[in-house]
Design a protein around this nucleic acid. Structure first.
Lengths: 337, 337
DNA sequence: CTGTTAGCGCCTTCAG
DNA sequence: CTGAAGGCGCTAACAG
């Protein structure tokens, strides 16, 4: 049966070592004023009892709990996850643990979760938005430091870290230019997303720098495969000369690739394709595997965590920081001859 | 600037109400021996100071922290997420908060996270495996209740809840039979997965019950689109008469659908296709949208949380519980005539 | 160097 | 019905 053996406390350790709790505490915490032999003895006792300091007690004293809240609006979505992983990474399990909450995109629920988190005296909060556009700030009267990740806060006093979508668009275009493509089309998602526009802007800038422009103004639609298919057909009807295609998401790119194949175009020899998000399950198994812009979300999560640490430490940042994207090259932009 | 106003403590409330901390405590916790008017006064003071009891202090006393650990091996993967959401649901943010840890499939790391979680005195643990096959038990000497979700524990003394894969396979086959298909093929993933075999078994049973059998022994391979494509070509070469196809995952199904289309088969009129996992991003945007077996993972998470609660409450369960699957019908099995 | 004392915020006896 | 006292596990002053 389950041994309900209460975990050892510091006084157990002290008793076993034949010293007082204070001495034991000092020894274990590496305070200076302890004789080496005593320290040794205490350590052995702690070991023997497999003593783990109770963080509740520590927290009660220090006012810090060693916990942070991660409030996401969209667990289902794949954006929150790598960010969380990055944050977890940066915190390191022993020093800081992460409370996860998902508000499911509901403001009431968010408020609720927030109260719960604060009542647990988290040392800080990371707010992960569901989409890359700005979101409402929680306001300045939250009692703990807050960092906004992915979706920036609309208050410049807050600190936010988000993906540099302009850079991502630029990267895609430069890559296509780099492999000699000159007649480039752009298909992207919902025009209600600022990120969609930013990526187009970046791509257009890169083309412009090369003395080019897109074969036609970017197509906005939805973030779906079917839009990718439909838009590609329309685009190629108007511009059969296209040799490069920038897609606003990997889903769109997958649709586009299907349509291209059905129109008899070889990828990448006739048309090279770049996606966005680097969603592995879609990208790696495409025909050919899809080159894609990676937002480096795990790094984003890591940075968010570091900044939160600094803020907890009394060194807060402000404004919106943009993390550059990376290009993941696969077969869809690697000519075979 | 950030108001570092220390949160109010019980003694603040007591002072404001003009009573002792003991009385304030009793009043707020609804203990009987307090005059109504006093209680009222205390409540108002608490309100005024927006007092929130410090759970650290409470936990220190009671031994319960109101937290549980959710240890997953595979955050990246899509299986952990709905389970976490379900668990979060069941716990409700106020009573219990969830510490999230991802071991990234590394046993050392898992051990590490586990220690961290235990040192935080979580009240219980949910272990979410990365794949539906049994995993090593954490053993009986964990000091808190444990529930295994998705991947069952290999120790029958533990309580595990997992998806009923045999049932899922059966469901897929019965559905195809129900729309009149009789010449049914099965393509599935890695034969190293017990779940792959279970799903095949369930499908074969259902066919057998109808006096049929698969056109050929199930094809095992990998959980990828490319395997779906390749296997479908081989299968149709040997059995061009096929009118129904059961796939072990949605990725395989997507590959299979591509291959079928390229072989000139109409879906679903010539060949109806069922996937497994009901991974929305793949299923809903397929051509036509893909019918799929849903493992109801969110419900699985909810059940895991409930069982954990019971165990914390001193009413532990044992053995492996299997949650039935659900069928999600879409266009790939909805004949158009 | 080591031990004693005093809390952190809260709850629970036990006297008044 | 209310308050004073003790203690949960730990650390930070101070004494010794």
């Amino acid at each position: 049966m389950v041994e309900k053996s209460k975990p050892a406390t510091l006084s157990d350790v002290a008793r076993l070592a034949g010293v007082s709790v204070a001495t034991a505490s000092k020894a274990l915490n590496g305070r200076a004023q302890v004789r080496a032999s005593t320290r040794e003895k205490v350590f052995r006792s702690a070991e023997a009892l497999s003593f783990i300091p109770n963080p509740l007690a520590q927290g009660l004293l220090s006012g810090q709990t060693g916990t942070v809240g991660l409030l996401t609006s969209d667990l289902e979505g794949r954006f929150s996850i790598p960010i969380m992983m990055g944050a977890e990474d940066a915190f390191g399990a022993d020093s800081t643990s992460v409370f996860l909450c998902d508000a499911r995109g509901d403001a009431i629920r968010e408020q609720h979760q927030l109260r719960a988190l604060l009542s647990r005296h988290v040392d800080g909060l990371i707010i992960v938005g569901a989409r890359p556009d700005p979101r409402r700030s929680l306001g300045p009267d939250i009692t703990v430091p807050v960092v906004y990740a992915y979706a920036p806060s609309d208050d410049p006093e807050d600190y936010s870290i988000t993906s540099d979508n302009v850079h991502g668009g630029r990267l895609a275009a430069e890559h296509l230019l780099g492999i000699g493509r000159r007649r480039i089309g752009i298909i992207t998602g919902d025009s209600g997303y600022g990120a969609a526009h930013d990526r187009v802007t970046g791509a257009a800038e890169a083309l412009h720098d090369a003395g080019l422009e897109p074969v036609e103004a970017a197509f906005f639609g939805s973030w779906s495969e079917s839009w990718g298919r439909g838009a590609t057909r329309i685009l190629l009807e108007g511009h059969p000369e296209i040799d490069g295609l920038i897609c606003g998401s990997d889903q769109i790119a997958r649709g586009a690739m299907d349509a291209l194949r059905e129109l008899g175009r070889e990828i990448p020899d006739d048309v090279a394709v770049v996606g966005h998000d680097n969603w592995e399950v879609l990208a790696t198994d495409a025909r050919p595997p899809l080159s894609s812009i990676d937002m480096d979300l795990q790094e984003l999560g890591r940075r968010a965590a570091e900044k939160l640490f600094e803020a907890i430490d009394g060194r807060p940042s402000h404004g919106i920081e943009k993390l550059p994207c990376r290009l993941m090259v696969r077969g869809s932009t690697t000519p075979t001859h």
